[in-house]
Amino acid sequence: MNFKHKYFFLFPGLFVLIGILIFPIIFVVRLSLSGWNSYNPGLDYIGLENYIRLFTDDPRFWESFFRLSFLSVTTVILQYVIGFALAHMVWKDIKFKRFFRVLFLVPMMTTPVIMTVIWRTFFHESLGPVNDLLSVFGVAPKWLTDPVIAKFTVIIVEVWQWTPFMFLLLLAGLLSLPKEPFLAAAIDGASPVRKFIYVTFPLMAPISIGAIIIRLIEASKIMDTVYVLTSGGPGTSTETSSFYIFIKGLREFQMGYAASMSFTYLIIMIISLTIIAKVLTKVLLKE
């Protein structure tokens, strides 16, 4: 095909993106080599000092990174499974189809900063409805003050908020599937389970990979939820990388150091997402 055309399609978007981002990205890299902080704002040059500090003297960053990996992988898997199940359920004929389709989308549209405040009252251990209702059964989980349960509370809120994302992407995928393979399967008399495994799922694999990758990226930025629910507590048990970077950057104003953490984080994420994408492609598309 004609060469000129393809560039006409690609370049407007690409150049706008690069045009807006080039300065900020270069600035962040430069920032990470400086000691910019609250009392000494400026792009002085301190070499790799921030990186040395990060790699040799900051176990908290790495702890928070592993915690983040656990949280984001768990939430994304849950979101994918539940989202797929829901999409599959309201795909074909079901009573009140339109109502459910819209309802399941709503959580995603709430502003996290505000909605998490409501979740906080919801799980409030003495003034919230959850423990009040559970007291009928004589249990009172420490939703926000137990180091282990608090992690799951964060997961619950994240799953609530972002399962709709998976749901919508997968539902749209299901709705745009070609009809022929299903007709063929029907003629063969395949059971619903076999139909799902051999027809639906393979057809949905490409969009699934896309959805999982984008959710992994977004889930890793988890920030407002942690900040409002627990501020990373109890202790450091719900602190994630992005929250830790937030504390170092906008709270303590160690901008140089935060930039070096962000940049390191960016590199690690790009590498691991590439690997995850490769693995997913292999497993799901059987390439």
Partner: peptide, 12 residues
């Protein structure tokens, strides 16, 4: 402290 008290901010 009240249940959940170890997660109290100033508002709580």
């Amino acid at each position: 402290v009240p249940p959940g008290g170890t997660n109290f901010g100033l508002g709580d």
